[in-house]
Amino acid sequence: MRKAIDDGFREFTQAYGESLEAFFDPLLTFLVWSEKVLLNSPWPLVIIAIAGLAYLGSRSWKLVVGVIVAFCVIGYLGMWEDTMSTLSIITVCTIVAIAIGIPLGILMARSDKVQAVVTPILDIMQTMPSFVYLIPVVMLLGIGKVPGLIAVIIYALPPIVRLTNLGIRHVDPDVVEAANAYGCTSWQKLKNVQIPLALPSIFAGVNQTIMMALSMVVIASMIGVKGLGQPVLKAITNQYFSMGLLNGLAIVAIAIIFDRVSQQYGLRIQKHREGGHGV
């Protein structure tokens, strides 16, 4: 059986490998473009842009100061290029995961049959060791940025799907019933009632997707993905303690920034929905 599976996979790779590479070319183009934008932009402009986004999301000056200090230290320690590469990877992976995950979560919320089919797949994606993702992806597409991106997206996708589904299913039935009583169509009900009320849960899913993607950065570096993961991997193999520590701390700093901003934004949305002062 093992030999049959291996032979079948090799035949599939030979027959469709080039077509798959062509299919993922737009993803590679998007990643290369975003990486060039971050690397070629003046560092003060990049820091101001990131700090501005952090303030828009969190409305916290303390967090903004923390962002500025963290990125200045990263630049001072010579990790700027690797950090920008990591940011571009996380940005692209998060956008793709959201584009796939939210519609899939909505489908799950609207159909028990879809949920019954998708849930076991998500269980497998979350429980399978992350190294296992690399095997079929590398065999299909070789070593490089696209295989790493696909592996990261697969690993980071389940939270946004699950929490979108959960958020929509847990919308107050009385509110949904009132929308039905007013004659709302399914699309109007979804757009104007269910999604707005599920936004805190959806943003929690976005938060977890970002964290999962960051946790996959080091593993993805094994197949040629540039970023902070490569120095960490090099430090492990060559026992460079300081290199591994500093790059690891840079990953932690990025994770904390993303986590705090997305959490604060989700809380503000929730307060706004509950009638408090929000966005």
Results as ranks from 00 to 15, higher is better:
residue 192 N to W: 12
residue 181 A to H: 00
residue 121 I to Y: 09
residue 128 M to K: 05
residue 152 V to F: 11
residue 147 P to R: 14
residue 265 Y to A: 08
residue 97 A to N: 01
residue 186 S to C: 02
residue 21 E to G: 02
residue 266 G to A: 09
residue 22 A to C: 07
residue 266 G to Y: 06
residue 139 M to L: 15
residue 190 L to T: 05
residue 51 A to G: 10
residue 195 I to T: 03
residue 35 E to V: 03
residue 56 L to D: 10
residue 198 A to W: 02
residue 198 A to P: 03
residue 23 F to E: 00
residue 61 W to K: 08
residue 174 D to L: 02
residue 234 K to C: 02
residue 188 Q to M: 12
residue 15 A to R: 15
residue 231 P to G: 03
residue 77 L to D: 06
residue 234 K to T: 11
residue 11 E to A: 14
residue 98 I to Y: 13
residue 169 R to F: 02
residue 150 I to K: 08
residue 121 I to C: 03
residue 78 G to W: 05
residue 134 L to Q: 01
residue 275 G to M: 06
residue 129 P to M: 12
residue 259 D to Q: 14
residue 198 A to H: 12
residue 58 S to E: 04
residue 34 S to L: 13
residue 213 A to P: 07
residue 6 D to E: 09
residue 52 G to E: 03
residue 13 T to F: 05
residue 12 F to Q: 08
residue 10 R to D: 14
residue 220 A to K: 11
residue 137 V to L: 13
residue 241 F to K: 07
residue 273 R to Q: 15
residue 148 G to L: 05
residue 205 G to W: 02
residue 47 I to D: 00
residue 18 E to W: 09
residue 230 Q to H: 05
residue 212 M to G: 00
residue 195 I to W: 07
residue 131 F to G: 08
residue 227 G to D: 07
residue 62 K to P: 10
residue 222 M to E: 11
residue 256 I to S: 07
residue 195 I to E: 04
residue 165 N to R: 13
residue 219 I to W: 12
residue 211 M to P: 01
residue 1 M to W: 14
residue 93 C to I: 10
residue 50 I to L: 15
residue 252 V to P: 13
residue 159 P to Q: 14
residue 82 D to Q: 10
residue 221 S to H: 11
residue 223 I to G: 02
residue 29 T to A: 15
residue 125 M to T: 01
residue 47 I to N: 06
residue 231 P to Y: 06
residue 249 L to F: 01
residue 69 V to G: 05
residue 187 W to T: 08
residue 23 F to P: 00
residue 60 S to E: 10
residue 29 T to I: 10
residue 120 P to Q: 03
residue 32 V to P: 04
residue 221 S to N: 00
residue 3 K to T: 07
residue 44 P to W: 10
residue 180 N to C: 08
residue 152 V to T: 13
residue 128 M to S: 15
residue 217 V to A: 01
residue 117 V to A: 15
residue 45 L to Q: 12
residue 149 L to K: 01
residue 127 T to W: 07
residue 3 K to G: 09
residue 267 L to D: 15
residue 18 E to M: 11
residue 18 E to L: 11
residue 152 V to L: 11
residue 14 Q to Y: 13
residue 57 G to D: 09
residue 176 V to G: 01
residue 56 L to V: 01
residue 225 V to S: 13
residue 239 Q to N: 15
residue 42 P to R: 06
residue 43 W to N: 06
residue 43 W to H: 09
residue 126 Q to V: 04
residue 210 I to H: 09
residue 113 K to A: 06
residue 144 G to S: 00
residue 276 G to M: 11
residue 91 T to W: 05
residue 123 D to V: 00
residue 241 F to L: 02
residue 51 A to T: 04
residue 187 W to F: 14
residue 156 A to H: 01
residue 9 F to K: 12
residue 268 R to S: 12
residue 277 H to K: 06
residue 242 S to W: 03
residue 233 L to H: 11
residue 212 M to H: 04
residue 64 V to P: 15
residue 24 F to A: 03
residue 141 L to D: 01
residue 61 W to M: 06
residue 98 I to T: 01
residue 11 E to Q: 15
residue 261 V to L: 02
residue 39 L to Q: 13
residue 177 E to Y: 04
residue 126 Q to M: 15
residue 157 L to K: 12
residue 210 I to L: 11
residue 81 E to V: 09
residue 164 T to G: 09
residue 63 L to G: 07
residue 230 Q to A: 06
residue 136 P to L: 00
residue 275 G to S: 10
residue 38 L to G: 00
residue 132 V to R: 08
residue 77 L to M: 03
residue 255 A to I: 08
residue 264 Q to Y: 06
residue 180 N to R: 14
